[in-house]
Amino acid sequence: MSEKQTFPAAAARLTQTLASATSDGNDVKSAINWFLDLLPGAANEEAAAAMESLAGVFETGSVENAVNAIMLCGYLVEKGYEGKHFIGALERLTIKNLDIAEPLLKASVTVMETTDDEDEDPYGAVDKMRETVATEHPDQVKADDWLEKIYPCLVSTYSSDLQLFNKGKALLYDRVKPYIQVSNACSWLSTLFSVLFNEPILVVELSQKKAFTGTISGIADNFQLQLLLMSIPEFGDAIDAELTAVVDGTGPQDGEASVAGKWDMCTWPILSASHKESGNSDSDHWIWSEGSPEDIEPLDGRRVILLKEPSYQRGLYVQRSFSTLPASIQIEKWLSEEQLKQWLDKMQ
């Protein structure tokens, strides 16, 4: 290799290779390998310059090379570099492709909602419809395929920076939410944008009569919520620090372990007189693990999480949905017996 062995030289060669119409697969692979080999020694400003340079390929390179450039930027974010250097260009392209793909996405939702499961598989019906669209409107299918390829970069970038998250949510949440049934890209972005930050909570452990007020941030689902609650030592038998690190984002994304759930998590109406008089099942007010904290019913401005003795043992797999998104429960104060009674009286 004749080029000087520096990261900026590797980044320049990579951008040039991805932008060239004459580069073949071997050229691209060689340039990417050189870039990645020298990445561990790259300074922040060098990585920033590389991302800005790669962003120039997003729209000018071939589709395959543009996707390579986008995914490399996402990889840099996952290595701790800031995504602000390319996210604007990627957002513009995402909106452009959403505009093009939207008729296909709308038609797919219509097919899903109108196909009878007994007569035909809805997903199979969508696939058939897409075959027709691919012939009549190939640009729509290409735009949808592009979104499916690049959304992990968007997810990693928005997960890593709250300011970028808020901007992306304002731009995209309402656009992607209607299509979660028919698009992995829309589903994952919608799940991410439903995550709450600095959200006030009240947690009550009913058997121990312990309760605190605080806030939650970055929790993607209620599996993660219960595991984080299980890491609080005041509730006893806390999960170990290694598993906590998986759940709060300071460790690997997957702990390759499962633990027994400690509680039935419930919303506050389970204690209400109207619920007790109705004779309905307590499960009507369970906080289901597959849901998200956004679904938890609030009372007086706080989402209330009641922790009851488990009705049966559940296994919770120790992992988190978003690798670059830190999650936390911040405790403001533990409640006195009288303060807890006041809250319980409100619920009852």
Rank of each mutant, 00 (worst) to 15 (best):
Y151C: 01
T191K: 12
Q5E: 14
L54C: 05
E277N: 11
S183D: 07
K149V: 00
N44M: 00
V176K: 07
V247E: 11
N280R: 15
A89H: 07
A107M: 08
G291H: 09
G291K: 08
A66R: 10
W263C: 05
V304E: 05
L39S: 08
S278A: 14
S323Q: 14
S23L: 09
D282L: 05
S20C: 06
T157Q: 08
Q5S: 10
D37W: 05
I216Q: 05
D237T: 03
W343F: 11
T191F: 04
K341H: 06
K209D: 03
L340M: 06
V318C: 07
L90M: 11
K167I: 14
W286Q: 13
S194Q: 11
T114C: 01
E309C: 01
D24K: 11
G249K: 06
E332Q: 12
F197R: 09
T115I: 03
L172C: 06
L72C: 03
R302M: 10
L192K: 01
N65F: 11
T132G: 03
L271H: 12
K96Q: 15
M230S: 15
R314S: 05
V246H: 10
E337K: 11
A31H: 00
A143F: 09
G83C: 09
S23A: 15
L164V: 05
Q140S: 04
E242G: 03
W288K: 14
S292T: 13
A170R: 14
D284H: 12
V195Q: 00
Q319W: 14
S30I: 12
L227P: 04
N33H: 09
Y75N: 13
E242L: 02
E148A: 03
Q348G: 14
T215V: 01
W34Y: 08
Q348H: 14
P178F: 09
L243F: 02
G80P: 01
T60C: 02
A211S: 00
I270Y: 09
D144S: 13
G83R: 11
H85V: 03
L306P: 06
L316Y: 13
D144V: 00
E309D: 08
L105C: 07
T157G: 09
I270V: 15
D161E: 04
S323V: 15
D264M: 09
C153S: 15
S160H: 14
L316C: 07
L202I: 07
E82G: 07
P8V: 01
D345H: 04
F212A: 00
V126N: 06
